[in-house]
Write a protein that binds this DNA or RNA. Structure first.
Lengths: 187, 187
DNA sequence: GTCTATAAGAGGATAGAC
DNA sequence: GTCTATCCTCTTATAGAC
């Protein structure tokens, strides 16, 4: 019932990475909080980068799934809304995790270029699908804009003092993203 | 016609800060590209942080102006669109500059907390104004979402292969942000 | 699995010659 | 104004005892 040291490490690291940023977080700091020494961390994870990768894996996986699901659907206004909802769910399910990318993109890029590239690719796949077949430049821009709106699931915490219930956050942002994309909202 | 060394430094630093991120950019690197040594940089700027501040000042100023202008207007759908347009203009006018904040928020926070706080404050002022008087939670969320859309002025470059004319970028994003905010778009 | 000790190097910053 | 040389601190990472 020790509760796995590896998990404790990931937990602390996640917390620090997503608040301070990946780069501003030192292994010494992590070790300290976990109650270990740096050297012991290295027993569990061979490098800081590997630690990041291990932490971030579920989010990547979520996005990958969302992208694949999108591509299996025919493009239509209803389906676009469904897809936006799926992506939003991934964000909400991994709020603090996603914060790492939001807080310190540059750090993640330099530490794990492949990871980042994968994320960009999935972003491209999603916006491409959202833009629809034979998209104009405007279609593509609006697809990007809609995805940006979903990012508010993370940033809103910074600007709002009060807690927002997750259902409301989801409902409002989904409507807003749909509108940003250029679709009429449901009445 | 030497073209001011200070300016050359700022130019190179801007380029590196906005691509690699503030933290991933070392003074050695900047100095090298400018054709100086680190020590010489320090003659012109007393610290890395001061260099950042000097570079970023115009953008902060732009936002400050935008926030002040907003607050001088009565809240209405038309004015909301005007305000969004002003903010968008600031983003477009300072694209690479704004990229610093987008690329490495964590770095900026840790290097220049005051600067960052000021930015947050202006973000708060703008979203507060956009949300209108006596806003519901939904109003506030949509205001944040609309601001996020404007961020696409920067991120779109990552996702689109082709160059987009600035007028089109402006027009499309303004419509999209307006829609995200929950206002009908002009026909 | 966890420790102490240390390597190896980069970073920001300064002193002082020219 | 620009240089060389150096300081100091902190980082990631490793070696090897227990």
């Amino acid at each position: 019932m020790v509760g796995d040291t590896r998990e404790a490490i990931r937990e602390v690291a996640l917390e620090l990475f997503s608040t301070r940023g990946f780069d501003q977080t030192s292994l010494r700091e992590i070790a300290e909080r976990v109650g270990l020494t740096k050297a012991s961390l290295y027993y569990h994870y061979p490098s800081k980068q590997e630690l990041l990768t291990a932490i971030v894996a579920p989010l990547i996986e979520g996005w990958r799934t969302a992208a694949a699901e999108a591509e299996s659907l025919a493009h239509s206004p209803e389906n676009a809304r469904v897809v936006l909802g799926r992506v939003l769910d991934v964000m909400l399910r991994n709020r603090s995790l996603a914060g790492i990318f939001l807080r310190d993109p540059a750090g993640v890029v330099s530490a794990a270029g492949t990871l980042w590239q994968e994320m960009l690719d999935m972003g491209t796949r999603l916006t491409t699908w959202l833009a629809g077949p034979d998209p104009t430049t405007a279609d593509r821009l609006r697809a990007i804009a809609a995805m940006e709106v979903l990012g508010a699931a993370l940033t809103s915490v910074t600007y709002l003092k009060e807690e927002v219930a997750e259902d409301e956050l989801r409902a409002v942002l989904l409507d807003s993203a749909t509108a940003a994309l250029g679709l009429a909202e449901p009445s």
